[in-house]
Design a protein around this nucleic acid. Structure first.
Lengths: 213, 213
DNA sequence: TAGATTGTTAATCGATTAACAATC
DNA sequence: TAGATTGTTAATCGATTAACAATC
């Protein structure tokens, strides 16, 4: 690993900064950006922007700010987004399908967007070996093999909650070390594997709290 | 408001506790649960479980633990989930559609699940006034009217990033005070309106960081 | 040079954990 | 009663903010 023990709170903000920089870079008319400006656009205080970036190096110039093009490039390297990352979607119900379509559109339209869904998996025999949006749907027990063949590094899990832990275990076994889980279930992964949860029900229930205010 | 200044970190854990309690309640064979047990199942330390709950009252008995049925009921009240909450989905592309279907299934199968998508909106003239999964798709400029008529309290926004701020402004205008945004954009809402972001790209980019370890 | 802004250290704030008296 | 576990206070930990010397 390149830098030691960067806290999750810091890593979580890096994509926010990158988004602001991508926007400025592609608009073309902003060459330099201060931590003030970057923070404002990302919703983070300027001091925190500087502190976050300082974990990874010295990217700015005193009295000047950060060069948009350079900092964007560096952030892309830090986030491993400077090369294609091949992603599997496991469970192609309506949510899985929607995520595939979203990703394909994004990947097609933005040549710098390097997260690419290239393999689908499902347990339903009726779906297996058919194509969806141009991608073959594989049976889940070929996960390890397809992971190797296709160079998969990430998985998006959109299977029912009851199957989620089992699917995640298979991912881990296959060597996948970053998983985005949409199933409403508390899953466990071994040390070294990273799991993010995108549980829509949980978010809605949380929001419901504020209706009582 | 019922309790003052509960931190977001606390509110975020309440649905986790509720999920554990719902599970225990419906399984039927666990009547009591200690903070130890509840914490284990929710992925939270026992001390924090007790501290979180203590913000809202005294729900346990020393030496005994928490009565599952009672604490579940109280948490449902705290989260306003003891009555139906009527939700709009704005933007019925494939992601919006998937979320509607997911919600309808969940609402149908679990009689205690009270978040209910009851109205759809879209900007596409070809979709407006057609039905999707039994729900009429309304034009977005009828949002205020339909909100009143249908008693909408929450919105799920799945429109393109370029339209998201405008849509959110309309929601606020219509009196909706809790919004779950899926668009990859930084949105702003006035004081008193609660916005949660469910930005899939951001999560994937964040996970990509760990591929470098 | 004078003004601006970084990188970094010290101060503050808030959240989590540890500990324990109260009590079931 | 004896054992267990809560509710709560004090201690710790970590993250954010404030401040400023370095320097472009």
């Amino acid at each position: 690993m390149r830098w030691k023990k960067i806290s999750d709170a810091v890593v979580r903000r890096l994509p926010l900064y990158l988004r602001v920089l991508e926007e400025a870079y592609h608009s073309g008319d902003v060459k330099l950006m201060s931590s003030q400006e970057l923070g404002e656009r990302a919703g983070v205080s300027p001091a925190l922007v500087r502190k976050d970036l300082a974990w990874f190096g010295e990217f700015g110039k005193q009295g000047v700010g950060y060069e948009v093009r350079y900092l964007r490039e560096e952030l892309r390297k830090i986030l491993n987004l400077d090369r294609e990352i091949r992603v599997a979607v496991i469970g192609v119900g309506s949510l899985g399908h929607a995520l595939v379509r979203y990703n394909q559109q994004r990947y097609r339209e933005d040549q710098h967007f390097n997260l690419h869904v290239v393999a689908l998996f499902d347990a339903d025999p009726a779906k297996i070996h058919t194509r969806l949006d141009g991608l073959m749907i594989h049976p889940i027990d070929t996960l390890a093999e397809v992971t190797r063949r296709e160079g998969l590094q990430m998985a998006i899990v959109t299977v029912p909650a009851s199957a989620a832990q089992q699917v995640v275990d298979r991912c881990v076994e296959a060597g996948i070390r970053a998983i985005l889980n949409f199933a409403p279930a508390k899953l466990t992964v071994p040390e070294g594997v990273h799991l993010a949860n995108a549980d829509v029900s949980l978010e809605l229930q949380r929001l419901a709290y504020y209706l009582g205010e």
